[in-house]
Amino acid sequence: MLEVTALPLAELRERSSEKWREYPADVLPLFVAETDFPLAPTVSAALRRAVDLGDTGYIASRTPLPATYASFARRRFDWEPDPARMRSTADVSLGIVEILRRVTQPGEGVVVTPPVYPPFYDLIAEAGAEDVRVPLIDTGTGWELDLDGIRAAFEGGATAMLLCSPHNPTGTVHSRETLTALAEIADEFGAAVVSDEIHAPLVQPGIVFTPFLDAGDAAERVGYAVVSASKAFNLAGLKCALMVTASEPTSDVVRGLPIEVEWRTGHFGLLAAVAAFSEESDPWLDGLLATLDQNRVLLEDLLASRLPDARYRIPDAGYLAWIDLSRVGWGDNPARRILKEAKVALHFGPAFGEPGRGFVRLNFGTSPEIITEAIERIATLVDR
């Protein structure tokens, strides 16, 4: 395992990505899902080698990425997807849209489970469909899919579901039993399930992640997965994702996509993804998970001591914290006041759907110092 620590704030402010350019320098940016860690050494080496060679052309028609991802899935998830049933594209969002366009007709319903990643609503609209919202069930200790509600949505005419697994923003890892039941319901109604599994490499040790396509025969028949190294390895700007299938009919859908869908893959993104999914990167990823584990517990401790009215459940995966501030009394969108008065940028809870009222999403993929400073700034609003 390698030790993975965040860069100093002064260096981070030299970055030119969205996280560090959206707000003035007096704001701590903990909103967008970018991390503050150096690249994995394997990724840096692959990109440097490409620059040295001037290897900046089009992606090749045959690449090692499918086989490399299959090996990664075998090591990390005990799953053996078929490399021949994978195809690359620019990013997970593009993969979702292109698949939804082929498995739905204009105006048909696509089930989503708010609170959920806000672009899901836009991606469904871009594909020409309409979102059908079936909120997660809050069990009091976690969140679960509302399988009865999803069944009702399919009975009502929805023809597909856009699944977030692991779930953003709650960090929930759905059980194999739940995913199997979901697949069987979808199969009963002839509906497709498109599973966004971008956060899967960030599942914490001791938590079992089940890829949707590995959740049984029905999942193979109805399912499409879209995966990427971009969240775990901070590669969003390099543009590379994989669309994965597990049956001949679903594979035919992905194979039938125009070649331009695949050619939109970034060449540097593909090179970086191959390096990230290689076995040589596992020690770095293990180190990252250890750091995130420490950060998620630190956040719990800080909230308990400085914002005791906040409610937060430690996520099973990822580096995003879903925090309920409704008892603090800062309205439906507390992130607005926090940004204006505490100079901390968090993601607006209501953007995730109706269940997000009173919530904020905080990115703890950073240093303990920045997390601590952010909570101290927010707590001063209560102290006043």
Rank of each mutant, 00 (worst) to 15 (best):
V4D: 03
T5Q: 13
L7K: 13
R15L: 12
S16M: 03
E18Y: 09
D26S: 07
L30N: 06
V32S: 12
V32A: 12
E34N: 05
E34R: 13
E34W: 09
T35V: 05
T35D: 07
P38W: 02
P38I: 05
L47P: 11
V51E: 14
L53K: 09
T56K: 00
G57P: 01
P66W: 03
F72G: 09
R75L: 07
F77T: 01
V92E: 08
V97G: 09
R101P: 01
R101G: 01
V110D: 04
V116P: 00
Y117M: 07
P119H: 01
D122C: 00
D122R: 12
L123A: 03
I124Q: 03
E126I: 03
V132I: 13
L136P: 11
T139P: 08
G142T: 02
W143N: 04
E144H: 11
G149F: 08
I150G: 06
F154V: 04
G156R: 07
L163C: 15
S165W: 06
P169I: 00
P169K: 01
G171P: 08
H174V: 03
H174P: 14
R176F: 12
E184R: 15
E188F: 08
A192L: 08
S195W: 01
L202N: 06
L202I: 11
P205Q: 04
F209V: 02
P211M: 04
F212E: 14
F212N: 12
A215C: 12
E220S: 13
R221M: 06
V222W: 06
G223V: 03
A225C: 14
A229C: 13
S230G: 03
N234M: 02
L235Q: 12
G237P: 03
A241Y: 03
E248T: 15
R255F: 12
I259V: 15
E260P: 00
W263N: 13
R264A: 08
R264I: 00
H267F: 06
G269I: 10
E279S: 14
L288G: 01
L289G: 04
T291K: 01
T291Y: 00
L292D: 05
R296H: 03
R296M: 02
L302C: 10
L302H: 07
L303D: 04
A304G: 13
L307R: 05
A310T: 09
D324Q: 11
L325W: 04
L325G: 02
R327G: 06
G331C: 04
P334M: 05
R337H: 00
E341C: 03
A351C: 11
G353R: 01
E354G: 01
E354R: 13
R361D: 09
N363S: 12
P368N: 05
E369A: 09
T372G: 13
A374M: 08
A379N: 10
T380E: 10
R384K: 07
